[in-house]
Computed example of a mutant assay.
Amino acid sequence: MPDRVDALVPFSPDRPKTRLSDTLDPAERREFAGAMLTDVLAALRAAGFAPRLLTTEATGRDVPETVDDRPLTPAVNAALDAHGPGPGSPLAVVMADLALATPRALARLRGDGEAGTDAGDPADVAIAPGRGGGTNALLVRHPAFRVDYHGASYLDHLRVARRIGASVREVDSRRLATDVDEREDLVEVLLAGDGAARDWLVDAGFRLEAGDGRVSFDRMRD
């Protein structure tokens, strides 16, 4: 495994988190998405990745970026084509809304400390599935593997791997499985986050509220 592994982080600053429109206004969604991206980039760097943004428009951040306004699947596949993943040159794809991601969780995506990886025979594809059947993070070593992010992409990616004869390692991690898309996901950030995304929610007036059932949140406004 190289000392630092390239990691692609797809990000759409022009249309972020539309499913949170009942909770955050457009400017707030942009700010919150930016805070989550800050956390993901910091965690990647600390885990030994070299992140690059795959963005629909230039962000001005202090990180290399590729601007591609196509849908996610063709944009990521074009990046895989350009990178040419292989055993000595893996490429990770990590979503920008993993507000709970930590360096330790992302090190598991790399395979650091995982059983079998020290023997020099890591899996061709490592997959961290999302809770709803999506794919929140990948690490690709097989040159023929390409993504398909439509629908239950986790199952689609398993099928792609089987078709090309690629070995697969699943990364079972709550922190990588939690992508922040829905209102209830904000509770997870308030409960377990410790970075810019949680700080943004707290500064915006969000507070945990424990009732008789599940923990929820309320928002204090000036």
Rank of each mutant, 00 (worst) to 15 (best):
G134L: 07
V180K: 02
Y154L: 01
E114K: 10
V187F: 09
L158W: 04
L109Q: 00
A123Q: 10
G116M: 09
D156V: 10
L139N: 09
Y149D: 01
R174A: 14
R141V: 03
D181C: 13
S167A: 13
V171K: 01
E184F: 10
N136C: 12
D185L: 00
A123E: 12
E170N: 12
G113V: 12
A105Q: 07
A161L: 10
G133M: 09
V168I: 11
T135I: 03
L109E: 01
Y149K: 03
A99D: 11
S173R: 03
R159N: 07
A99S: 10
R183E: 15
D179L: 09
E114Q: 14
G134Y: 00
H142N: 08
A152W: 11
R159A: 15
G134M: 00
P103A: 08
L155P: 01
R183C: 07
R175F: 14
D179E: 14
G111Q: 08
D112H: 15
N136D: 00
D179H: 14
L155Q: 12
A101F: 08
L139V: 11
R174I: 06
T178S: 13
A101L: 09
I164F: 00
A123R: 10
L139H: 07
G113M: 11
D124E: 04
D172E: 14
D112Q: 12
H157E: 00
S173F: 04
H157M: 03
G165D: 06
R108Y: 01
G195E: 05
R159Q: 13
R108E: 15
G120F: 10
P122T: 08
G113K: 12
T135H: 06
A144T: 02
R175C: 06
A161V: 08
G132E: 08
D194L: 00
D181G: 09
P143R: 12
T135K: 06
V140G: 03
A115D: 14
H150S: 14
T102H: 06
R162I: 05
P103M: 09
R175L: 15
V171L: 09
A119D: 15
E188N: 14
Y154E: 13
A119E: 15
T102C: 02
P103D: 11
L139S: 08
V189H: 11
L100F: 10
P129L: 03
G113R: 13
A192E: 14
L176D: 05
T178F: 05
T178A: 13
R162V: 12
A115W: 13
I127Q: 01
R169H: 13
V168P: 02
A115N: 09
D118R: 14
L106Y: 11
V125R: 02
V125G: 06
D121T: 15
H142Y: 09
S167M: 08
R159P: 00
G193Q: 04
D97L: 04
E188V: 01
A115K: 13
R141P: 00
S167D: 11
L190C: 05
L100I: 07
L191N: 11
V125I: 15
L155F: 13
A192V: 07
D172G: 00
Y149Q: 01
I127H: 01
F145H: 14
G120L: 09
V125W: 06
F145W: 06
G111I: 12
L138Q: 04
S173D: 14
R174N: 12
F145P: 05
S153I: 02
G130W: 00
